[in-house]
Simulated scan of single mutants.
Amino acid sequence: MKLIYFLVAFLALASSIASAYDPSPLQDFCVALNDTRNAVFVNGKFCKDPKLVVAEDFFKHVDPGNVTNKLGSKVTPVSVNELPGLNTLGISLARIDFGAKGLNPPHTHPRGTEILIVIEGTLLVGFVTSNQNNNTNQLFTKVLNKGDVFVFPIGLIHFQFNIGYGNAVAIAALSSQNAGVITIANAVFGSTPPISPQVLTKAFQVDKNVINYLEKQFWYDNN
C-alpha cells in the first residue's frame, strides 16, 4: 500500500513539474500565424495551414545589436514572436551584444532556463538564488571567456557584465518558445502606473526623495 501511495505522489509531482514548462507538441510543427482564418489556436498562437508552410517560416537572420545606449548592451531575441516556426517547440534564443563595460542588467525569465555561451570577449555573469537556504539569497558568479558556457536556472535573477576592454558577444538559449523577461529596475521603478512611493520607501528602507529620484530616471530597455 505504501508503494501505491508513493507512485501516486510521484506521478502527481511529475505532472506538476511538466505543466510548468511549454507543453510537448503533438505535431511536427505549428508555424505561428496572426491570421485567424482557417487556423487552429495552440500555445497562444494560431497555427498556419501545414500545406502553406515554407522554409522561411523556420529562418531568421540576426544582425549585431546597437550597443550605443545607457547600458552599453543590446539583446536581440529570437522567440516565437520573431520566428513563427518556433511555435510549440519549447525553445528560443537571443543574441547579446556588449560594448566596452556594457551590462545586461539584473533580470529574470519567468518561463525559461537560460544557457549562455560566450562567442567573443570576457563576461562576468551571475545569478541569485531564492531564499530557501537559511533565508539567504546566495550569489553565484563566474568570469567567462570565449567558448565558456554558463546556465541560469528558470526564474532566478541574473546578469551579464562585459569586463573586457573591447566588445563582447554571447548567445543565450532558453527552454521556452517565449521565456519572457522582467528587468528588475525597470519593473520596480518604471512600471506603468508607478508603484506607490509608500510601498517602495518601506520596501527599500530609504527616504522618499530617493524613490522619487529613481522613478524619474529613464530606465532603458535593452531588449
Rank of each mutant, 00 (worst) to 15 (best):
N186S: 08
S92E: 09
G121V: 00
G121C: 06
W219Y: 07
F152Q: 04
L93R: 07
N81P: 08
P197V: 03
H107Q: 06
P84G: 05
R37Q: 15
A12E: 09
Q177N: 05
R95E: 00
L200C: 06
G155Y: 01
K51R: 15
N87Y: 12
A185F: 05
K48H: 01
L89A: 06
V80C: 06
L71Q: 06
G164V: 07
S19K: 11
F204G: 07
N212T: 11
P23M: 03
K70C: 10
A55M: 14
V54Y: 13
K45I: 00
P50M: 05
Q198S: 14
L33R: 05
K74R: 15
K101W: 10
I182A: 07
S16H: 12
E215S: 14
A173E: 11
N104L: 11
A203L: 13
R111G: 04
K51W: 09
Y5P: 04
E82V: 11
A168R: 00
N69I: 00
A94V: 08
P110C: 02
N38V: 04
F10V: 15
N135R: 12
V42F: 04
G102D: 02
L52R: 14
A39K: 02
A12S: 12
A39F: 04
S176E: 01
S92Y: 10
T183R: 03
F46M: 10
E215P: 00
A18S: 11
C30E: 01
G126I: 07
P194S: 11
R95F: 07
K202E: 08
N131G: 10
L52Y: 12
G166T: 14
N145D: 02
S16N: 09
N137P: 02
G147H: 07
L174Q: 11
W219F: 10
E82C: 00
T36W: 09
V125H: 01
F59A: 13
T122I: 10
C47K: 02
